[in-house]
Measured scan of single mutants.
Amino acid sequence: TTTITTTNEEDARRIATEWKNKGYTVHVEKRGTTFRIEVR
């Protein structure tokens, strides 16, 4: 599992989409101002 964190919502969406397009399972969680993107 790879975890990526960013405070930028646009980055979070872009990163999540990129990983999904590669065939990975992506889970995005917002904690306060931080977005945690888990890639499996």
Rank of each mutant, 00 (worst) to 15 (best):
H27D: 06
H27R: 10
K22V: 04
E10T: 09
E38C: 14
T7F: 10
E29W: 11
E29C: 14
W19D: 00
N21E: 12
E10A: 12
E29L: 08
V26K: 00
R40H: 13
Y24C: 05
H27Q: 08
E10N: 08
T1W: 15
R31E: 13
R40P: 04
F35Q: 03
T3E: 07
E9W: 15
I4D: 01
R40E: 09
G23R: 02
E18W: 14
T25W: 13
T3R: 06
I37G: 00
T5P: 02
T1I: 15
I15V: 06
G23D: 02
K30W: 06
T6M: 05
V26Y: 01
G23S: 02
K20G: 07
E38N: 08
T2H: 14
G32V: 02
A12K: 01
A12C: 10
T2R: 14
I15M: 05
W19R: 01
T6S: 06
T17S: 12
R36G: 03
E9K: 08
A16G: 04
A16K: 03
E9S: 08
R40M: 13
T1A: 10
K22R: 12
K20I: 14
G23M: 02
G32T: 03
T33M: 11
T25V: 12
R40W: 14
F35N: 02
K22S: 05
A16F: 07
F35T: 04
N21S: 10
N8Q: 05
W19P: 00
D11I: 08
A12F: 04
N8M: 05
R13Q: 11
T5G: 03
V28A: 02
R36A: 11
I4E: 03
W19I: 03
R14H: 06
T1V: 15
D11V: 09
G32H: 04
T17Y: 09
I4Q: 03
K30Y: 07
N8R: 06
F35H: 05
T33N: 15
T7G: 08
N21R: 10
A16M: 08
T25K: 09
V26R: 00
R13E: 10
V26W: 00
E10S: 09
V28E: 02
I4R: 03
A16H: 03
I37M: 02
N8G: 05
E38R: 08
V26L: 02
R13T: 09
V28M: 07
G23Y: 02
W19N: 02
T3V: 15
E29R: 08
A12Q: 02
Y24K: 03
V28P: 00
T25A: 10
K30R: 10
E9F: 12
R36I: 15
A12Y: 03
I15E: 02
E38L: 13
T34H: 12
E38M: 12
T7A: 09
T2N: 08
K22P: 00
F35L: 05
R36S: 11
T1E: 07
T7W: 09
N21I: 08
K20P: 01
T1Y: 13
E29D: 07
V26F: 01
D11G: 04
T5N: 07
N8T: 08
R40V: 13
I37R: 00
H27N: 09
N8A: 04
K20Y: 10
N8W: 04
E10Q: 10
E18K: 08
E18D: 08
T34A: 09
T34R: 09
T33P: 15
R40Q: 11
H27F: 11
E18S: 07
R14D: 05
G32W: 03
A16L: 05
T2L: 15
E9C: 12
V26Q: 00
A12E: 00
T3N: 06
R36E: 14
G23K: 02
R13A: 10
I15F: 05
A12D: 00
A12I: 03
N8Y: 05
T3P: 04
V26N: 00
D11Y: 10
D11T: 09
T5R: 06
T25D: 14
E18Q: 08
T3L: 13
R31W: 13
D11R: 06
R13K: 12
E29P: 00
V26M: 01
R31C: 14
K30P: 04
I4C: 11
V39E: 00
E38K: 08
N21D: 11
R13Y: 14
T1F: 14
T5W: 15
V28D: 00
R13P: 01
E38Q: 09
R14F: 05
R31N: 13
E9R: 08
V28L: 07
T33Y: 08
Y24G: 02
N8L: 06
R36V: 15
W19A: 04
N21Y: 06
N21L: 12
V39A: 04
R40T: 14
H27A: 08
T17W: 12
E10M: 09
V39I: 15
D11E: 13
T2V: 14
T33R: 09
N21F: 06
E18A: 09
N21C: 10
A16N: 02
R31M: 13
T3I: 15
I37L: 04
T1L: 13
T17Q: 14
I4F: 15
T3A: 06
N8C: 11
E9M: 08
E29G: 05
T25N: 10
T5S: 07
K22A: 09
E10K: 09
N8D: 10
D11L: 11
D11P: 00
E10F: 08
F35S: 03
T34G: 09
I37E: 01
T1H: 11
N21P: 00
H27L: 12
T2A: 09
F35A: 02
K22H: 06
I37F: 00
E10D: 11
R40F: 14
E38P: 00
K20T: 12
R14G: 04
E10W: 10
